[in-house]
Nucleic acid binder design. Structure first.
Length: 280
DNA sequence: AATCTATCCAACCGCCTGATG
DNA sequence: CCATCAGGCGGTTGGATAGAT
């Protein structure tokens, strides 16, 4: 015979934890440690399965858990680690102090994954895929969305980067590569339409870089202005000198109009010297 | 104000691996 | 060696909430 079962199936409570249950679990673990999860519920006076207790403790009650919004640095780390590790959430969580695998998994599935798809990037391979753009262009194209207009026009602006070319040339395999082609072209050499698209690139990039803000009536509304600026500075500091993306951003400044609503004043590189107001 | 829809996330489920008797 | 379990993991669900109509 092996071990006894971890818990009786009958009489075990399921569903959301009450504050009283949380209190019992915290008090017991503070006094006795985790020990054996199988025997813990009985010893702590909880009508729960040991597995449920372990999950509640590791994902929610543990004192070293960092709650709240993910920073840009954390999000960048998650994306980079996911490129290498895939859906190994526990391995990713091990490199993000205070974050649980469950929290990272939820954040990936509800935020990051969707954003990558919107950019035409496969969240599994992290490569650009034309068929993802197909679905955007053919099925859900919204002419009021600058992000989507950007991608549609991108294909029109760079016909040499057609889908066969994308498939055959692995060095240009994602959305950022398309942006870099435009970023690296001097502003004065671009057509009027290209210039508009370059503005659009910077706008989209800033919103991704800062990781905060939502469009409301053409203005960018942020929850934490200082954290947004901090993320922006972190991004810029991590880019190599002469990087076309960061050089396009280097003269950007933020102007707060009120406590949490502001417009972006930007002087883009190689652009008309008068400041240009960009609104999200 | 009421209803519908989309999003978020805590919690559960089922599977896998190594440990145990 | 085998049956069984604990612990850990990734996938999925469903209730709560926010936003849209």
């Amino acid at each position: 015979m092996g071990r006894a079962p971890c818990c009786e199936k009958n009489g075990v409570k399921k569903g959301p934890w009450t504050p009283e249950e949380d209190k019992l679990l915290i008090q017991y673990i503070h006094k006795n440690g985790c020990g054996n999860w199988r025997t813990l519920p009985n010893n702590a006076g909880l009508q729960r399965c040991g597995k449920s207790c372990r999950l509640r403790w590791t994902n929610y009650l543990r004192p070293d858990i960092k709650r709240g919004r993910f920073s840009f640095q954390e999000e960048e780390t998650i994306i980079q680690l996911h490129t290498i590790l895939g859906n190994k959430w526990s391995a990713i969580a091990a490199r993000l102090p205070g974050r649980t695998d469950n929290e990272i998994k939820n954040y990936w599935n509800t935020r990051i994954r969707k954003r990558l798809l919107r950019m035409g990037i496969d969240p599994v391979t992290h490569h650009f895929h034309p068929h993802l753009l197909d679905s955007i262009i053919n099925n859900s194209y919204d002419p009021t969305s600058q992000m989507r207009l950007s991608r549609l026009s991108m294909m029109q602006l760079y016909p040499e980067l057609n889908r066969d070319f994308v498939i055959q040339n692995q060095q240009i395999n994602d959305y950022q590569s398309y942006q870099l082609v435009r970023m690296q072209t001097p502003f004065q050499d671009l057509t009027a339409h290209d210039q508009f698209m370059k503005y659009d690139d910077v706008e989209s990039l800033l919103q991704n870089v800062t990781g905060f803000g939502s469009e409301q009536n053409g203005l960018l509304v942020v929850e934490d202005y200082s954290l947004m600026v901090s993320n922006y500075e972190y991004y810029r500091s991590g880019q190599p000198v002469g990087d076309p993306v960061s050089s396009s951003l280097e003269n950007c400044t933020f102007q707060s109009d009120s406590s949490n609503i502001f417009s972006l004043q930007s002087v883009m590189s190689n652009v008309d010297p008068s400041p240009t107001t960009l609104q999200f």
